[in-house]
Design a protein around this nucleic acid. Structure first.
Length: 269
DNA sequence: TCCTATGTTGTATG
DNA sequence: ACATACAACATAGG
């Protein structure tokens, strides 16, 4: 389920383990979540290391660890479509989809992802690796300006605005439900060509993008399903779901290869 | 059996 | 070179 807001939620579930040593590592060496990395190396280097800090950016998380006689260790996790983190009691028996399990004296930290679209990254070095630093500037940072959004839309004149909002290089952390939520609250039809938005609409889109991110982090950070009922989120999948603002039945169609939900009347072509 | 799924990426095509 | 469209990845559940 993880988009920016849920990623932040899951990141914090490992917070109890900060400051503690990893006494053992259990992993599935052949799991697809380890594509591009060496699971044996991860197991070797993380064992005995101390988990120091974590941060989230876009749909990814970065965990910093320290070990004797080596440069800092960087563990990256992308939750893909079905990834989750959890902290389990000592003695936890890993389940089938628990691909990376870090044992500590007082708990066990687990990354599981049954569909395995997520991934584990790993690096050592004094500075965070490129796969982390290359993530686009956050939507809630000063770099996310109306001008930057306008310029990005201009280069995608004919593309529907919906898939444009899913492009991580400009909208890091936005996923399918957040994109629909943004367009719904901005009153913009998801099929509108990106280049057809007026300056006024771009301004609203920019404002609502930031607002949805800020509020989603606030509500979801508290509890995973903590969004208010007034959000589209709670109605978008139910058959016969109605727009929380107008009471009119919602519409669902595929746009840009993803199921898209909107409220006709509020969002016109 | 068939369809869907809160994501990314490689490849083909324009 | 750039933008766009779509299959592929792997699995569970309705």
């Amino acid at each position: 389920m993880p988009e920016l807001a849920e990623v932040e939620y899951y990141r914090k579930l490992w917070t109890p383990g900060l400051g503690d040593t990893v006494t053992g590592v259990r992993l599935h060496p052949k799991a697809a979540v380890f594509r591009g990395v060496d699971p044996a190396q991860i197991k070797r280097q993380l064992t005995g290391a101390t988990l120091l800090s974590s941060e989230a950016a876009a749909k990814q998380m970065l965990f910093r660890l320290a070990a004797a006689d080596t440069a800092p260790l960087w563990l990256g996790i992308h939750l893909g479509m079905t990834g989750e983190l959890s902290a389990q009691p000592t003695g936890y028996e890993p389940k089938k989809a628990d691909h990376l399990v870090l044992d500590q004296a007082r708990r066990t930290l687990v990354f599981s992802d049954f569909r395995m679209f997520g991934r584990v990254q790993f690096a050592t070095g004094d500075k965070p690796p490129a796969w982390w630093t290359q993530i686009a500037p956050a939507i809630l940072s000063p770099a996310f300006t109306v001008g930057a959004v306008a310029a990005f839309l201009q280069r995608r004149t004919r593309t529907a605005i919906k898939p444009v909002l899913l492009m991580q290089e400009r909208f890091p952390g936005i996923g399918n439900w957040m994109a629909d939520e943004i367009l719904w609250s901005a009153g913009i039809h998801p099929r509108r060509p990106a280049g057809s938005l007026t300056p006024a609409e771009i301004k609203i889109l920019h404002r609502e993008t930031r607002r949805v991110c800020r509020e989603a982090i606030k509500y979801v950070g508290r509890e995973l399903h903590g969004l208010p009922q007034s959000w589209l989120f709670h109605h978008r999948w139910e058959d016969g779901g109605k727009c929380p603002k107008t009471g009119v039945p919602l519409v669902r169609e595929e746009i840009g290869g993803r199921t898209t939900c909107w409220s006709p009347g509020r969002q016109k072509l």
